[in-house]
Amino acid sequence: MSSIFTKILSGEIPSHKVAENDKFLAFLDISPLAKGHVLVIPKEEINYIFDIPDELLGELMVFAKGVAKKMEKVVQCERIGVTVIGLEVPHAHVHLIPINSVSDMNFAKPKLSIEADELAEIAAKIRNA
Rank of each mutant, 00 (worst) to 15 (best):
E88S: 14
E59Q: 14
Q76Y: 10
K111N: 09
V67Y: 07
H95Q: 11
A68N: 08
I80T: 14
E72V: 06
H91K: 01
I114H: 10
K73M: 05
A64S: 11
Q76F: 12
K70P: 00
H91V: 01
E59D: 14
K109I: 06
V62L: 14
V84T: 14
M71F: 02
A116N: 11
N106C: 03
Q76R: 09
I114V: 15
S113L: 13
I85A: 15
K65R: 13
N100F: 09
K73C: 05
I99E: 04
E72I: 01
A64V: 03
G86F: 02
V94Y: 05
E55G: 10
S101V: 01
F107W: 08
L96T: 01
I85R: 14
H91W: 02
T83D: 11
L87I: 13
G66P: 10
S113A: 15
K70M: 00
M61R: 09
N106A: 07
G58V: 11
V75R: 06
V67D: 08
F50S: 09
D104G: 06
M105K: 03
V74T: 06
T83E: 14
L96P: 00
S101M: 00
I97T: 13
K73S: 03
G58E: 12
V94F: 04
G58D: 11
K73L: 10
N106I: 00
V82F: 13
H95W: 04
G86H: 02
A92R: 00
M105T: 09
F107S: 08
H93R: 04
K70G: 02
L112G: 00
E88H: 11
G86D: 04
I99M: 05
L56R: 03
L96I: 00
F50M: 10
M71W: 00
A116Y: 11
G86W: 01
L57Y: 15
E72S: 12
G81V: 11
R79Y: 12
I52L: 14
S113W: 13
D117R: 02
I85P: 01
K69H: 14
A116I: 00
P110G: 01
A108R: 07
V89Q: 09
I97H: 12
V82H: 07
E59I: 07
L112D: 03
K69C: 12
P110N: 06
L112R: 00
A92P: 00
V75Q: 12
G66Q: 02
G86R: 02
D117K: 04
D54Y: 13
I114E: 11
G81T: 03
E59F: 12
E115R: 06
L56Q: 10
H93M: 07
K69D: 15
A68S: 15
D104F: 08
A68G: 12
G66Y: 06
D54F: 13
G66W: 08
L96W: 01
S113H: 15
N106G: 06
I49P: 04
N100G: 05
I114R: 05
S103W: 13
H95V: 02
A108K: 07
K109C: 13
Y48M: 14
E78K: 06
G58H: 09
Q76E: 15
D51Y: 14
A64I: 02
V75N: 09
F63G: 05
L112F: 00
V82G: 12
M61G: 04
G66H: 07
D104S: 11
L57Q: 09
K70I: 00
